[in-house]
Design a protein around this nucleic acid. Structure first.
Length: 168
DNA sequence: AGATTGATAAGG
DNA sequence: CTTATCAATCTT
């Protein structure tokens, strides 16, 4: 039931709504936990001023330039590890931020609960047995909204409806 | 609403 | 090396 490798070639704009309702899987001390993804955001190439990579490639954003299927875990405000799913083709920085899962609202909360830290940066979600995604079979209804915490982006990018929230 | 937090990246 | 900036969060 693991997500197909080909899905990660989709653009972040297609993948973000697709991931809603899918299962985020993590192995902790041999125990596997699976949580339904309830909220995502899309970050799309260097043209998106809200994307970390919009100024070009750095050591931090290097993972986003890889082929789809990697985890991009970065530290926000020095405190919170945030989990992103890299997608799109190599050289095209795109990622889907996992903003919430069932039971844990808030990107920093869910990474803490699932013990996701920067050790998992660059983890290959297609083959990893530490962190991966599974298809739950359900395709949920969703609503869209503006992204959060990107006031530094251009006005038009702030206005984009690239946040996807699952509907009950 | 305000304080806090520390890695990142840009500038000297 | 030094400073400004933050894809948040907790506390008032």
């Amino acid at each position: 039931m693991r997500l197909n490798e080909e899905l990660y070639n989709l653009s972040s704009l297609q993948l973000a709504p697709f991931l809603l309702g899918k299962l985020l899987c993590r192995k902790i001390n041999g125990k596997i936990i699976k949580l339904k993804i309830t909220e995502t955001e899309a970050y799309y190439t260097e043209a998106d001023t809200a994307c970390h990579a919009h100024k070009g490639k750095t050591a931090r954003t290097e993972v986003m330039y890889r082929r789809g299927g990697c985890a991009y875990v970065y530290l926000c405000y020095g405190i919170h590890s945030l989990l992103n799913i890299v997608c799109g083709e190599e050289g095209s920085p795109q990622a889907v931020l996992i903003r919430g899962v069932e039971g844990f609202i808030g990107p920093g909360k869910l990474t803490k609960a699932m013990q996701i830290n920067r050790d998992l940066n660059g983890e290959n979600l297609i083959v990893s047995d530490e962190l991966w995604l599974e298809d739950s079979g359900c395709t949920a209804d969703f609503t869209t909204g503006t992204r959060i915490g990107i006031n530094y982006a251009s006005e038009q990018d702030i206005a984009r409806q690239w946040r996807f929230i699952i509907k009950e």
